[in-house]
């Protein structure tokens, strides 16, 4: 346990001295909320009081976007929709800093002599990555609220909003990111070239999920019906078609994307279910938070076991 604490202290010391940390914080804490506030201001100035605003909906839109609650919520949602997602960028960069640099600068031979127990070393590094991600997310929520507070001085916005629900979604999203961090660590550890490891973190899941979707759209899983004659009990086709429910991406971002899914569900489908097409998957159709939590826990266990097992057996050449 002491070894773990030592690793955490040392890695925090390192992360705080890396410029990359502050660039990420600047993007998430400064640029994103400033942009959102600017968009809110544009909407308010250009559409407020015009024919578009006959029912007073623009004030509602500005409140949803640029209020303290709105910006804090977008700071959670926004990073889950860019590609590669900001969460994966953060996970990959932290993995590159905490794991990749040890190989890149041949530091494992130093680290593992100063702290010979390998489990605390890796556990400490993963914990620091999660801690850094947590601080970044907390800072994003706080700066969003502060930028929103600034907006209340020149926009028709208030502090109203489901802050408790939002805090819960932030906490869930942070916890779900453990699987992403472990995946990023595993890829960066497995690939000798850091850049290749980082690129893999960004695109591997998307590539596999895209290939699946393409195959399903073009060939489909009807051919497995022949096998089903033999393996009735397995229900192969249904199982193969249910795979998207277990996709890494859609489950990982279930908390961050759930406000958008709720909004689309309320506006477009009259409260009904969102169709499970490509757009539906992007919004997290058919994926409940408990289901996503179970799936991400499964991913975290698998990636964690692989990572720690590989690290324990790794020869530092």
């Amino acid at each position: 346990m002491r070894g773990f604490a030592h690793v955490v202290r040392a890695e925090v010391f390192k992360v705080l001295r890396k410029r990359r940390t502050y660039v990420l914080a600047g993007l998430w804490w400064g640029l994103l909320p400033a942009l959102v506030l600017f968009v809110g201001r544009l909407v308010h100035v250009n559409f407020g009081g015009t024919f578009v605003d006959e029912s007073g909906g623009i004030a509602l839109v500005v409140q949803e976007i640029a209020s303290p609650y709105g910006i804090a919520r977008i700071a959670l949602i926004g990073p889950a929709y860019v590609s590669p997602t900001f969460y994966m960028i953060v996970a990959a960069l932290l993995a590159a800093l905490l794991i990749g640099e040890e190989r890149g600068h041949a530091m494992w031979k130093t680290v593992l002599v100063a702290q010979p127990q390998r489990f605390p070393v890796m556990a400490g590094k993963v914990s620091v990555a999660m801690l850094a991600l947590g601080v970044l997310m907390l800072g994003a929520a706080t700066s969003g609220a502060l930028f929103g507070a600034l907006g209340t001085t020149f926009l028709p916005t208030t502090w109203a909003g489901d802050w408790t629900g939002l805090a819960w979604l932030y906490a869930l999203q942070w916890a779900f990111c453990l699987a992403a961090v472990l995946f990023a660590f595993l890829m960066v550890f497995l690939f000798k070239n850091i850049a290749l490891g980082v690129v893999t973190v960004f695109f591997l899941q998307g590539l596999l999920e895209g290939l699946y979707t393409l195959y399903r759209a073009t060939v489909g899983f009807e051919p497995v019906n022949r096998l089903n004659v033999l393996f009735q009990a397995l229900r192969l086709q249904q199982r193969l078609e249910a795979i998207p429910q277990y996709f890494f991406t859609s489950n990982l971002y279930a908390p961050a994307r759930s406000p958008v899914a709720d909004l689309v569900r309320a506006v477009n489908t009259g409260g009904g279910e969102i169709p499970q097409d490509a757009l539906g998957q992007l919004l997290g159709a058919g994926i409940t938070l408990p289901h996503a939590a179970a799936v991400m826990a499964g991913y975290a266990v698998v990636f964690g076991i692989l990572l720690f097992w590989r690290f324990a057996r790794h020869d530092v050449e």
Binding site: F13, K14, M107, K109, A114
Partner: peptide, 20 residues
């Protein structure tokens, strides 16, 4: 081998922290 972006003193500090 060292972390090139850290000073010599900070590299020693990091090693010391790691060791406890």
């Amino acid at each position: 081998s060292f972390y090139p972006y850290l000073s010599g003193r900070d590299n020693l500090r990091h090693a010391a922290l790691l060791h406890g």
